[in-house]
Amino acid sequence: MDKYAVIVAGGKGMRMGTAIPKQFLPLADQPVLHHTIKAFLTAFHDIHIILVLPADQVSYAQMILQSFPERIDMTIVTGGETRFHSVQNGLKACGENSVIFVHDGARPLITSDLIQRCHEQALQVGSAIPAISVAESMRLVEDEKSVPINRDHLRIIQTPQTFRSEIILPAFQQQYIEMFTDEATVVEAHGTKVFLVEGERSNIKVTTPEDMVIATALLNDRMQYD
């Protein structure tokens, strides 16, 4: 089966406080997106990379292509009004009879091991949604009251959310509703059960300057052992 990685990079860098969108900021001397894409190319040399960017950021794509010493095959797609519409646009570039990964461009610490685990599970049961347990105490806040929640029943959801094409492609033909916060909710609304897979705590989403500090430390530590 073919493999496609739809990498959605729609950040504007507002919380990062930079003029350059966060996915293009330097991380260990390379743009954040370089590390994200490299992980997929390392996991599967034959994977098709589909990069979804806002219309006003498409010009940055050349920066990503030039960050690789070898030529890479990458399709650039313009994003939409919401994440749902951006993913929907990216999926139009995917073929049938395939496994499709949908990943946040601002998760540059994704490992090839997790990508391969997601692929294997999606082949077996149709989907793989990376999730990690909650380490902190949690409370549900309603109005001015709060109640404790059993954290054993909670999971933090990550990407790449991975599906066989016959599951995700028809699901994204639905009309958009606000409850579609990720690909799993879209697939579930279409009537298909999704399956979790163990994620990785290092698979953080880079959103703030503090996240960049953490990502740099984790990446430098990882590179020492590569």
Rank of each mutant, 00 (worst) to 15 (best):
V125I: 14
S59M: 11
P54M: 06
V58I: 15
A122Y: 06
L109P: 00
F84Q: 03
H34K: 07
I64T: 08
Q88F: 11
D56W: 06
A43P: 01
S112R: 06
V32R: 06
F68T: 11
T42C: 05
T111Y: 07
D46K: 13
S67L: 06
S127W: 00
M74V: 11
G95C: 10
S133H: 10
I115W: 01
P108V: 10
S86D: 05
E96H: 13
F44P: 01
T82S: 12
I47Q: 00
R117H: 12
N97R: 09
I64R: 02
E144M: 12
E144P: 02
R107S: 10
R71I: 10
V134C: 07
V102R: 01
S67M: 07
A61V: 10
G90Q: 06
V58C: 14
P69E: 15
F84V: 05
V102E: 03
T82R: 07
F68Q: 11
V52K: 06
R107H: 03
D46Y: 12
I132H: 00
I49M: 04
S137C: 11
L33D: 04
I115L: 07
Q124M: 13
V58M: 15
Q88A: 12
E81M: 13
Q121R: 12
V99N: 00
E144Y: 11
T42P: 01
V32Y: 05
L140S: 13
R107G: 00
E136C: 04
I100G: 04
I37H: 07
R71W: 10
V99T: 10
I115Y: 03
N97A: 09
L53E: 04
D104N: 08
K145C: 12
H48M: 08
T78C: 14
V147Q: 13
T42L: 04
N89R: 14
Q121F: 05
D73E: 15
F44K: 05
T78E: 15
V52F: 05
L65P: 03
Q124E: 14
Y60V: 04
F44T: 00
T36E: 03
E142P: 00
R107V: 03
E81C: 08
L65H: 08
I110D: 00
A43K: 01
L109D: 00
E120Y: 07
A39S: 14
F101H: 06
S127A: 07
V141H: 11
M138E: 05
K145R: 14
A122H: 04
L33T: 02
E136R: 06
L114K: 02
V99F: 04
H35Q: 11
S67C: 09
D46V: 09
H119Y: 12
S98A: 15
A106G: 10
I47F: 04
H119F: 10
R139M: 11
D46Q: 14
G90N: 04
L41Y: 09
Q116V: 12
H35P: 11
